[in-house]
């Protein structure tokens, strides 16, 4: 087991390094520096700016410095567009928001998806099964950037139930007003429930559908296997058969899907941030893309890459731990 973890780490760490170096090389090869503008700056000014950001040093030194900073201090350097903040400031501001609704989306996707899948499999070929399959197919063709405007149209413009965007204090507010029943405490801050609902629905639906589909087919297979027949034959009640015997093998393929789902959710959070103006990390990412703020884009890309690789590692280890059949 430990050898397996070490072997996976031996792949994961160079991958992250490669991603950092690749992003740096990309940025360095960009036509025109980050400070080129319509009107060329005087040579002295340019030289001063470059000296301030360390751009006058040799490439290899710059790269080594950047990689060292990221790896040891988790420091992504200054923003090239806003002199008053660093990439770390941007991440610190936006990431908690993304984390909040990302976490709830993952919880909703897994709980609703697994329950729906199991229910559909247990009532195979009933209306519930057909409904689940229908929802699954429908959600496949409704990516989050389609969901988001439809949700706003429905719940904000027509029904007027939910706010169409913004974060209303969100994580910035540290404590809830006790009279405010929609306010929840979470992650050391407070969130207003009504602002989280639509981002969570937009982000989680398609993964919920995928998880439901995977669970359903997995459960159907498990329920037809010999050990379940044995469990039922010896007279165990249905509930016990499901909880004690069927659930664990059913969830194995779901766990292996969590890796890709996580990548998809992190990518999808960009759309959710834009569509609902949450002020999450995706909004900074796209704004920086328009401003050509290279260091911010690079920092966020690397951060997301690290998270993705780390999470995939975690899922693999979890899988190897749960499934005794896996070779490592």
């Amino acid at each position: 087991m430990y050898v397996y973890i070490l072997r996976r780490l031996a792949v994961a760490i160079p991958t992250i390094l490669l991603l950092v170096i690749f992003s740096f090389a990309l940025m360095y090869s960009a036509p025109g520096g980050p400070f080129n503008s319509e009107r060329p700056l005087p040579a002295q000014v340019m030289a001063n700016i470059e000296a301030k950001y360390g751009l006058d040093r040799p490439v290899m030194v710059q790269m080594a410095d950047y990689v060292w900073g990221v790896v040891t201090r988790f420091d992504f350097g200054p923003s090239f567009q806003y002199t008053d903040r660093t990439v770390n400031d941007v991440i610190a501001q936006g990431f908690p928001v993304t984390l909040t609704y990302g976490f709830w989306s993952a919880v909703v996707a897994v709980i609703v998806g697994v329950s729906l899948g199991i229910a559909a499999a247990l009532r195979h070929n009933s209306w519930l099964d057909y409904l689940a399959v229908g929802v699954t197919i429908g959600a496949q063709a409704l990516p989050n950037f389609v969901m988001a405007p439809i949700l706003v149209l429905l719940f904000t413009l027509w029904l007027g139930w939910l706010p169409g965007g913004g974060w209303a204090g969100g994580i910035v507010v540290n404590a809830c007003d006790p009279r405010d029943s929609l306010c929840w405490s979470a992650f050391g801050g407070a969130i207003r429930l009504d602002y989280v609902i639509m981002p969570v629905i937009a982000l989680s639906t398609s993964y919920m559908a995928s998880i439901a589909r995977i669970t359903r087919s997995s459960m159907l297979e498990v329920m037809n296997s010999n050990f379940i027949r044995t469990a039922r034959a010896k007279g165990l009640p249905m509930r016990r058969v499901i909880w004690r015997h069927a659930l664990k093998p059913t969830l194995l393929p779901v766990i292996s899907y969590l890796g890709p789902a996580f990548v998809g959710m992190i990518t999808g959070s960009v759309v959710v941030d834009i569509a609902f103006s949450t002020g999450g990390i995706g909004q900074f990412f796209v704004n920086s893309a328009f401003n050509r703020d290279y260091s911010v884009i690079m920092g966020i890309t690397i951060l997301v890459g690290m998270l993705t690789i780390g999470f995939n590692l975690l899922v693999d280890i979890l899988y190897a731990w749960i499934d005794p059949k896996i070779r490592y």
């Binding site: 994961a12 991958t15 991603l19 690749f22 992003s23 990309l26 940025m27 090869s29 960009a30 036509p31 990548v263 992190i266 990518t267 960009v270 990412f285 796209v286 893309a289 050509r292 290279y294 884009i297 690079m298 966020i300 890309t301 997301v304 890459g305 993705t308 690789i309 995939n312």
Partner: peptide, 16 residues
């Protein structure tokens, strides 16, 4: 294992 959407956007920004 690399989040390609982000890398692609980085490329789109840098190379136009």
């Amino acid at each position: 294992s690399i989040p390609f959407m982000f890398v692609l956007i980085l490329m789109l920004v840098i190379f136009g």
